[in-house]
């Protein structure tokens, strides 16, 4: 049996890499992918806990999370598309119109 601490550490590691991706990369689509990575890291810890706790709730919730992630990806990517049409770039540092 796999020790749950190891799986959880993997989850934490993936999550951290996702955070770094969000904050360090500039391509907005890569940032978006990093967010997906963070969601997956959380999913992994959900499954791990569900298994170790003899519960199905975590597994069911992953179902929901994946659906929400799909919806989010669809809407997010279409927003990116429409921003790209006006700004002609994917660089997040140029998406700075909403400020004082």
């Amino acid at each position: 049996m796999i020790p749950i601490e190891h799986i959880l550490l993997l989850s934490a590691l993936l999550f951290t890499i996702g955070v770094m991706g969000v904050m360090l990369r500039r391509n907005v689509i890569v940032i978006f992918m990093s967010i997906e990575l963070m969601l997956n890291a959380v999913n992994l810890s959900f499954v791990t806990f569900a298994r170790s706790m003899d519960s199905m709730t975590g597994v069911v919730f992953i179902f929901f999370i994946i659906v929400v992630a799909a919806a989010e990806a669809v809407v997010g990517l279409s927003i990116i598309l429409s921003i790209y049409r006006t700004r002609k770039t994917l660089n997040i540092e140029e998406f700075n119109l909403l400020k004082w």
Binding site: V19, V22, M23, I92, E93, N96, L97, L98, K99, W100
Partner: peptide
Amino acid sequence: LRPLQNGLTQNYALIFI
């Protein structure tokens, strides 16, 4: 405080983190 509100999403993410 205004410079904090600079429109750069990653700055907001940084504060969030």
